[in-house]
Amino acid sequence: MTTGSDKTDLSPALAAGVSVSARRGPWKRVFQGLVASPTAMISAGLLLLIVVATLLAPVYAKHVSGTDPFRSGLSARIKIDGKPTPVMQQSTEGLGLGVTPIGPTWGAQYILGADGQGRDVAARMLYGGQNSLLIASAATLICLFFAAVIGITAGYAGGPVDSVLSNLIDMIWAFPVYLLAISLSIVMIGKSYSFGPFEISSGSLIVPILIIGLVYVPYVARPIRGRVMAINNSEFVMAARGLGIRRWKILFRHILPNVSTTLIVFAPMLMALNIVTESSLSFLSVGVQPPNASWGTILQDGQTLLYSRPWVSLAPGLAIMVTVLLLNLFGDVLRDVLDPKSARGR
């Protein structure tokens, strides 16, 4: 329990006649606030379900669909009603040239149909979900880390350091996010890098993670900087300074704990944003690279099959929508719990 957070606790505590909550510690109070909200609990539970489902992808591929979702199955045959049926079916339209992948079978194998290379879409959805969620969460952590470092440095140091960093932030801000991400992707993707002992292979997920993580840094760093400046000018920090407490100690004991709530509020919304960004970049084929799957790459695979096999596009789109929706719902509650002022209007 820090002096910094005491201040935010004080006013409601006073209003309630020094309630117990002030002594209970802020994190416990946040946790209890989340548990008390059905919206938060249901969305968190469903998100957990999605995570577990994607983690079970190998099990699904092995025991249910029985196909390797990373190898093309152009000549595969499956049994439907006891009859062997090719996965890639001869087209019946036009001249009958070309093949169309099998549509949803609503059975164990190819429940959502196959994609253009005869791979099981449902199994790829689960594997792709792993990657989409991994990229989104790793990019969120990267973004929060750099935004915190830049925002706190600029806000706390002030002076020339602040003006250099703020101008840099403004400059990157003026760059449309998607154009910046696409530019970085085109230059960086599809190549291998080596930094001393570290080797990044060409299809590695690290590249999209870094790109998606970095493009949103200005959007978080700017409010963090403002928050640090506000805390720095608040009475309790001035009092601490007046007492002769050293700058570093003020930074770690008073500024950081107060900024951390702002960072946490950003996390779920940033993750939601990152899932959409990943899908957009992969849709433009500058995100996750084949043979890796993600919800975005499945959407891209489905683009040419949109009119004949819409489920290849429908399924990943719905998965993205549901996941983002749940993250935003959870994020709304989290914000209200962490920042009671924003909740008074609701």
Binding site: V276, S313, G317
Partner: peptide, 22 residues
Amino acid sequence: SMMAVAMPVFWVGEMVNLVTQN
């Protein structure tokens, strides 16, 4: 409005095309 924010814009476009063009 929460749904609108949650859907990738290109996917909405694809779904619109699926219905109106096909």
